[in-house]
Amino acid sequence: MLDAWQYLIAHPEKLAGWTLEHLWIIFVAIVIAVVLGVVIGVYISGRGKEHVADTILYLAEVAMTIPSMAIFGLLMLLLSSVGLKAIGFLPAVIALIIYGQLPILRNTYTALQGVDPAMIEAGRGMGMTEKQLLFKVRLPLAISVIMAGVRNAIVLIIGIAAIAAMIGAGGLGVPIFRGLRNARLDLIILGGVSVSILALLVDNFMGWVEWWVTPRGLKER
């Protein structure tokens, strides 16, 4: 523990670099994951899409159960076969997008499904188009649950992103793997603790975002 602290004092710029790399991967992955997850979630929550919804949610669940190591491996194979860069940033981001899908997709779907039918009926009865209904009523009512899903997804992929260092994506996984290879406990602790602190900070921040996007009429306080 003390060693890790001394390392941090000696090389603060290194930790800062890894953290920034880590955040950048997370940021790119989560932005794409949110867009993808919400769009698919909205689509499968439409009328008469129950079967599609079941299939897609099931696939997302299956994807979650694949060990991250295996996903990185599979992606390397897949990307190299189509001539794309098989290591580093790209496969890392793709893997994180896949992992982030389930919480976002599931929450979007559940939240939209959970909107009180009376409100949908009232909106439709007053002559709202499906699009107006989505943006004026359904999404505002679902937004806080969707954001809770995004929050889950971020915390989840912050941890998984550490493993992405293994395929050369950089980030806070770098000191962890370096420590493992060289039996340097201080590096392992430094990387591990940093990932945890980062996850906690981001989680708190997202909690605030969640509160902030909730429409005033629905806020608890």
């Binding site: 009376a118 009926e121 429409p215 009429g217």
Partner: peptide, 30 residues
Amino acid sequence: ENALRRDIGYAIQQIGLFPNMTVGRNIETV
């Protein structure tokens, strides 16, 4: 369909006020 509904007021038992909107905005929906 939508033009028709905008000219027919609609009130239901469950009321269905939009909780994300103020009373004013609810009334101003149509």
